[in-house]
Design a protein around this nucleic acid. Sequence first.
DNA 1: ACGACTTTGTGCCTGCGTTCACAAGCGGCT
DNA 2: AGCCGCTTGTGAACGCAGGCACAAAGTCGT
Lengths: 267, 267
Amino acid sequence: MAAQRDQGHNGDQPPATVADAPAREVTARDVPAARERARAIPEAAVARLAVYLRVLSAMGEDGVTTISSEELAAAAGVNSAKLRKDLSYIGSYGTRGVGYDVDVLISEIERILGLTRKHSVAVVGIGNLGHALANYGGFPSRGFPVAALFDVDSDLMGVPVGGIPVEHIEDIESICREREVTIGVIATPPSVAQDVCDRLVSGGVQCILNFAPVVLGVPDHVEVRKVDLAVEMQILSFHVARRADEAQAEVTVDGTRPGVGEAVVGR
Amino acid sequence: MAAQRDQGHNGDQPPATVADAPAREVTARDVPAARERARAIPEAAVARLAVYLRVLSAMGEDGVTTISSEELAAAAGVNSAKLRKDLSYIGSYGTRGVGYDVDVLISEIERILGLTRKHSVAVVGIGNLGHALANYGGFPSRGFPVAALFDVDSDLMGVPVGGIPVEHIEDIESICREREVTIGVIATPPSVAQDVCDRLVSGGVQCILNFAPVVLGVPDHVEVRKVDLAVEMQILSFHVARRADEAQAEVTVDGTRPGVGEAVVGR
DNA sequence: ACGACTTTGTGCCTGCGTTCACAAGCGGCT
DNA sequence: AGCCGCTTGTGAACGCAGGCACAAAGTCGT
Ligand SMILES: NC(=O)c1ccc[n+]([C@@H]2O[C@H](COP(=O)([O-])OP(=O)(O)OC[C@H]3O[C@@H](n4cnc5c(N)ncnc54)[C@H](O)[C@@H]3O)[C@@H](O)[C@H]2O)c1
Ligand SMILES: NC(=O)c1ccc[n+]([C@@H]2O[C@H](COP(=O)([O-])OP(=O)(O)OC[C@H]3O[C@@H](n4cnc5c(N)ncnc54)[C@H](O)[C@@H]3O)[C@@H](O)[C@H]2O)c1
C-alpha cells in the first residue's frame, strides 16, 4: 500500500523560498548573531515540518524517544532524503548512527514554526463552517487558542459557540487589537469576505486563513492562505478524467492496461 | 492593495507534472487521435485553472463575453504571463488582439477538469465538520452532488442532513458502488480515518479528500488530497515568527525598517 | 486595402525544490 | 582501544515551474 503523494499541503505557495526581501541591501542576511538563520526555508518544507511535528508528537506520547530519518519519513509519507534535508534547514540535531531525539526535534520545530508564542485566532462568520471551526479542539490543543468569534447576525450575539460568545462584526477592530489576535479566519459568504478581510487587517491581524472562494487583496505585510474545497474537488476530478482517458488510449493502442489497477472497471 | 500570493492552493503537490506513467513505452503520447493531449499539465496549473473557472463563471453571469489575459489574471490574482501559459496547456482558444471568449474558455476548462461528468460525493463522519460539508451548497452547484452520508453513530441514522439521510458506515461499500461515488470525503476522527479510507477504496472510490490529520495509505490508483487546517495555521505562524525576527534583526543592524509596514507595532 | 495597434502564444532563461549518493561522525562490539 | 557498521548531513545534478520578452496573428480604423 503506497503512502499518499505528499502534496506539499497548501504548501506549494508561489515560486519562492521564504526569503523575499525585495530590494534591501544586506539587512539581516549576514548579521553575526543572526536571530535564527531561519532564512530561506522553502515554503514546501515548512508545510512538511508541521506534519513531522504532528507525527513526532504522536510518537512522543507513545513513549518513543529516538527515531531515524527512515522511520519518520515513512510515518510522514515522504522520502527520507527529503526529510533529512528539511530538518537540515533548521539545524543539526541528529546523532549519526542513531537518529533524532524526539523531544529535541519537537522543540526545535516548534521554535522554527513560531509556536513558542501562542497565536490567538478570531473566526468570522459563524455559520455552518464557522461553527465547526469554533468547536474544533484541534486548534487550541496545538497552540492556537480561539480568542473571538464574529458575525453580523443579531440572533447569534452573545451565544456561546465552543465556549466563546459571538460578538458583533462592528467591534472586530477593537476586539482584535485588545486580544492581540494574530490569525483571522474568514468563513463568511464570499460577497463580504473582502470587507471582513479589510477590517481584520485594520484590526492589526497579520495572517488570514480564507475559506471563502474569492481572491483577497491585502497589503504586503499580511499573509493570506486560502482553503478552497471546490478547487480541491476539481483537482481530484481532473485526475479521474485523466486516468479514464489514459486507460482508454492504452486500450486503443495495444489492448493491455499495464498496472493501472482495476478501478475503472464499470465504465 | 496587493493581490495575495497565489499559493497554488493545495496545488503544489509532489514534484512532478501530471504525466507520471512510469515505464510504459509509447502509450498514448503519440496516438494520432490522442484522447485529449491533456498530457503534462503541471498540477499547480490545474489548481489555477479551477480558480480561473470560478472567476470566469462569475464574469459570465455578469454578462461579460470577452476577456483579456490581463483582466482575467488580475481577477484571479496571478501574473498574466502565467495565466496565458496555463491556458496554453489546454489549447489555443484566444483571439489575438481581442482576448478570450468567456463561454468557450469555461467549457474548455470544464472539459479538461473532467467536469462534464458529474462526480458523486460521499461524506463520511457527520460531526461538526461533516454537517458543514453536507450543508454546503457550493458542491452540488459546481458539479459535485452529494450522493451519500455515512456515520457510525446510531442516533444519526436516517436523519437528513442537507436533505440527505445519514447511512451506516457498514453499508458504505455497497452504497458507494450502487451510487457510483467517485469522491469520498473523510471527516471522521483521525483514529478511524485509515479504516474508513480502506472501505471507501474497496467501494470503488477513486479519489479521497481527507480532513483528518493523518497520512493515509492507499493503492496507486487512488488519489488522495488532504486539507490540514492545523498545518495551515502553523505555516501562518511561521511567517509571523519570521517577520518578527527579520524586523528585529534589521533594527539591530541599522535601526531602520524599510517598507515592511506597521504591523508589528505591539510587540 | 493597408497599416497600426492590441493581445495571444511560446521559446528561453533563471531559480527553486527534489533526489542521489557519499563522506563524515558516532555508538557499540570485540 | 580500535574497528565496524549505521545513520546523518550535504554537495552536486537534475528537472520542473515561473517570468520575461518578443514574434505571430488578428482586429480595428482610415
Ligand atoms: N460549509 C462548508 O462546508 C464550506 C465549504 C467550503 C467553503 N465554504 C465557504 O465558507 C464560507 C461560509 O460557509 P458556510 O456554509 O458556513 O455559510 P453560512 O451561510 O452557513 O455562514 C455564513 C455566516 O456568515 C455570517 N455573515 C454574513 N455576512 C457577514 C458579515 N458581513 N460579517 C460577519 N459575518 C457575516 C452569516 O450570518 C452566517 O452566519 C462561504 O464562503 C463558503 O463558500 C463553506
Ligand atoms: N471541526 C473542524 O473544524 C475541523 C477542522 C480541521 C480538521 N478537522 C478534522 O476533521 C475530523 C472531524 O472533525 P469534527 O470536528 O467534525 O469531529 P466530530 O467528533 O464532531 O465528528 C466526527 C464524526 O465521525 C463519526 N465517526 C466516528 N467513528 C466513525 C467511523 N468509524 N465511521 C464513520 N463515522 C465515524 C462520529 O460519530 C462523529 O459524528 C477530525 O479528524 C478533525 O481532526 C475538523
